[in-house]
Design a binder for these strands. Structure first.
Lengths: 334, 334
DNA sequence: TTGTAAGCGTTATCAC
DNA sequence: GTGATAACGCTTACAA
């Protein structure tokens, strides 16, 4: 494999390699030489080797992106947004898929820490002490997506209010027996904040929180199915269910339908996510739309800003973007 | 940002940097020194700079992955498979999202060609002359996923037979008026091969192909909706529809349901994809399951093999993997 | 088994 | 405006 390098180009153009380098970078070259060089470079399709450049300048034009599970609708849309944005500036992205393993998150933070990337965009599910301690030791920009955090620039969703609004929607329709299906509160956004929204909405309407109406599982349809079964087989049965994710809700709907309950006549159901599924189930699921692609774009944008402060990365830039949400009111509630 | 380098480590360990390098690579070091070095490296958390290494060895431990649209279920699962597989061997992946633009495919092939990666995994929708010409000029391994090609190792789906089997399923149920909703034949796998399967299935059963039953659109639900409308508003109406993708089929189902047709009583429908959607629509969609994650894993596996022939990359290794499919017979056909 | 020194392809410094 | 030359951090002959 013959690599044509800057020296070859210099020879062909009859100048020194410094001049070629200047042509490529600051552009400080006479018009005469500029033309000659341009011609040579076009005809040879020469591209500077990025590793050599990186070694010298410590700039890689690579952004490390850590995602919990690339094969989810959420993560893949976020990645799409990041990719669209940073590629405008000549950056590429290095994907680290953690398969929801915290150990792998730490591992990839470590890997990215030492080399290879100019910045990290971390799509987080939780930020433990361990996360924060290694993140603090990283000397280049980190942007967090999907969790709110004091310590880093971040793009997050308004989980508390989305959840609260959704539950208020049910309350406004007169519902008082509203069950909640959630996930572990270690997941601050989905587990903790959405639960808080649920509780506060009830409080605001003077409805007392009932332990039997509160269930916790994982993100799967199965989990939704099982927990709906639990809910409907206890003495006190809800007349509405709010699930923290579409998958859970759809799983629950499946149980309800299997058991002959009519949605929304017998029971209402809603959730958060606006997944493709939510739009094709019967009845169509009432849910909250989150702007995942936008989240990725904004995250990429912040990263580009941070990297642009060529006076060196300033820890002072702490942009935090609350992305909001849009209620998608469809036919699963009454 | 202070970078601790191999020289520092060498000083601390009281040996030369060559010894450190050997410790890190071939391991040709005395036990005494090995222990000393190990201690130093652990206490300093030293990691060799990969760009310096890459510059010297021409090995980057990076695989470029080109996908048509990362936010689709298909692509994101393929990427997950690739990532899982190659990360076992210490490789990372660089994602290029082309947003279905052929120009961008070419652009990224060019970018990856010149530097940066040890191999390319290309999830292709079509392979034009332009693609092949630049691919031929690339001197390191390329693996193609989702299209069958003579020139490169590839992992592909059996589109012809999946399609044929699906249509035969309808024929076996006694259907004779079977419509087809496809996409452009430039997409060899989805457009051309699946159409061929449809036609040959009909032929095998002595059913004549009718122009009015053949529709072509894009991959969207909208397209399915509109083309179903066309089909049902012409003189000759089908009693069954085979769509080349789940999205198209679900769009069509929506039209049919909106118009009061009963599925499968009035009309049967099936497709290929086994997307999440297909499992939650009513009735559940009969479709063919493709092993996307496996495709990614196999693609990664082939790449690792190609890269392992450390006698240099041999163009002779031409593994081609036909992944098969599994029919998911559900309630949308009768 | 170890150390010395050259070299990978760039950019940065400095003198001209 | 330009060209030598050193330097980035690592691997790898080669010599010891």
């Amino acid at each position: 494999m013959i690599i044509i390098n800057i020296i070859e180009i210099a020879k062909l153009a009859g100048v020194s390699k410094s001049t070629i380098s200047r042509y490529l970078n600051d552009g400080y070259v006479s018009d005469k030489n500029r033309l000659k060089i341009q011609k040579i470079i076009n005809s040879t399709a020469y591209k500077p080797l990025c590793h050599a450049k990186a070694l010298r300048t410590k700039i890689t034009n690579l952004i490390g992106v850590i995602v919990p599970k690339i094969s989810t609708e959420t993560a893949s849309r976020v990645v799409e947004g990041i990719s669209n944005e940073v590629s405008k500036y000549g950056y590429d992205i290095l994907i680290a898929n953690t398969n929801l393993s915290v150990d792998k998150e730490i591992k990839y933070l470590e890997i990215f820490k030492n080399n290879q990337v100019d910045g990290i965009i971390f799509m987080a599910t939780k930020l433990t002490e361990k996360h924060l301690s290694i993140m603090d030791s990283i000397e280049f920009p980190i942007v967090v997506i999907a969790q709110k955090t004091e310590n880093y620039p971040c793009v997050y969703y308004d989980d508390y209010n989305a959840s609260k609004d959704m539950v208020k929607l049910l309350l406004n329709k007169g519902h008082r027996e509203i069950a909640f299906i959630g996930v572990t509160e270690e997941d601050i956004s989905v587990g903790f904040e959405r639960k808080r929204g649920y509780i506060d909405a009830l409080k605001e309407y003077g409805v007392s929180y009932k332990e039997e109406f509160f269930k916790k599982g994982d993100f799967s349809m199965d989990s939704g199915y099982k927990l709906a079964a639990e809910l409907m087989n206890q003495n006190e049965k809800p007349k509405a269910i709010f699930a923290v994710s579409d998958s859970i809700a759809v799983g629950a709907m499946q149980y309800l339908t299997d058991m002959g309950y009519k949605i929304p006549e017998d029971i209402s159901i809603c959730s958060i996510g606006d997944s493709k599924m939510s739009r094709v189930v019967t009845p169509k699921l009432t849910t909250a739309h989150y702007f995942h692609k936008t989240a990725g774009e904004k995250g990429g944008e912040i990263m580009m800003e941070l990297l642009n402060k060529n006076s060196g990365y300033s820890k002072k830039i702490m942009k935090k973007i609350n992305l909001g949400y849009r209620l998608e009111i469809r036919n699963s509630i009454k």
